[in-house]
Design a protein around this nucleic acid. Structure first.
Length: 311
DNA sequence: CCATAATCCTGTACGC
DNA sequence: TGCGTACAGGATTATG
């Protein structure tokens, strides 16, 4: 599932293939692939076609292309978004999902949009579960005057990213502000860490990993954790993101691949996520899975202490 | 205002 | 074999 490391790998891939290129044409095969784009595909194309991709930027899990004239082309991978780089010009005709033979690779059934660049490359936005989206907008200045995210030097931001906090790998993240916010949030620490408005980039997998490293139970109210513990959690979370990024991100199946279609390897290094009924690598107790906020939480029932006491 | 629940979506796995 | 159900979960929207 794309979290910060996976989004960064896609960003880097897009930077390699798209930066400096001009957008020649965009086909939207599924209208749901656009979000908040009131004028639909025509508006998307109107803002994008003919403009040059000057930078490929990421904040947390949000990606966008900086186009000329201050236009931004926002990309969110959602649950299953990926890009495929197509260099065969006949692909434009081949890649109509309904026309794909059953023997074709699965991803060909899930092409939601095609972006043709001026060097003949076509970038196919593939998204099986349809949680991802594209959105072209006029960008706005950042409130702190710093660059909008990783991959650019300009202080611009698509409006739909303005409420998203900087991420743990962003040198301009205000860590003190994050700690202050965590210290006065009453929801469980896991909910707070998943809230992209507090700190961005973390998803279900890396939150579970960071909390296991910190020996903190996910249900603990954020405002009941002492400042040093909160600092420890953020430190571990940063480490997990860095390590995953170094290994190419997490992947469990063909849903997630990077822009070149290659999977990451971090799943081999996960200590708790997906390991219910397997031994804790620290104490040997059997790990458990619980339901929380409509998703799974994996934890060690022994060494991740219950709030307020032993156990 | 804050916190939490519901919602979107599709393919896969599994029990009966 | 087939059918119904649970599950995967990021981020927005709605609700209490």
């Amino acid at each position: 599932m794309p979290e910060l490391p996976e989004a960064e790998i896609v960003r880097a891939g897009l930077e390699r293939f798209a930066r400096g290129r001009r957008i020649e044409h965009i086909d939207v095969l599924r209208p749901q692939t656009l979000r908040r784009q009131g004028g639909g595909a025509a508006e998307l194309s109107g803002l994008s076609v003919g403009r040059t991709i000057e930078a490929v930027v990421r904040r947390g899990k949000f990606i966008w292309w900086e186009l000329s004239d201050g236009v931004g082309l926002g990309i969110h991978l959602g649950m299953s978004g990926q890009f495929r780089v197509l260099t065969d010009p006949t692909h434009d005709e081949v890649l109509v999902a309904s026309a794909e033979p059953a023997s074709a690779p699965r991803w060909r059934q899930h092409v939601r949009a095609r972006i043709r660049l001026d060097d003949g490359t076509t970038l196919a936005f593939v998204d099986q579960r349809m949680f991802g989206y594209l959105l072209a907008v006029d960008m706005e200045p950042t409130v702190d005057g710093h660059p909008g995210g990783y991959g650019t030097t300009s202080a611009l931001l698509p409006p739909h990213v303005a409420h998203i906090s900087r991420d743990l790998l962003d040198p301009h993240l205000d860590l003190a502000a994050v700690l202050a916010r965590l210290a006065r949030t009453r929801s469980p620490i896991k909910a707070a860490l998943l809230n992209q408005e507090i700190v961005s980039g973390l998803g279900n997998i890396y939150v579970d990993e960071a909390l296991w490293r910190s020996r903190v139970r996910y249900t603990t109210p954020s405002d009941e954790l002492a400042q040093p513990v909160l600092e420890t959690i953020l430190s571990h979370a940063t480490d997990v993101l860095r390590e995953s990024l170094a290994q190419g991100g997490t992947s469990f199946d063909a849903l997630y691949v990077n822009v070149n279609g290659e999977s990451g390897y971090f799943s081999r290094s996960l200590a708790v996520y997906g390991r219910a009924d397997e031994p804790c690598l620290r104490c040997g107790a059997l790990l458990i899975r619980e339901r929380f906020a409509n998703r799974s939480s994996f934890l060690c029932p022994v060494c991740q202490a219950r709030p307020g006491g032993a156990g």
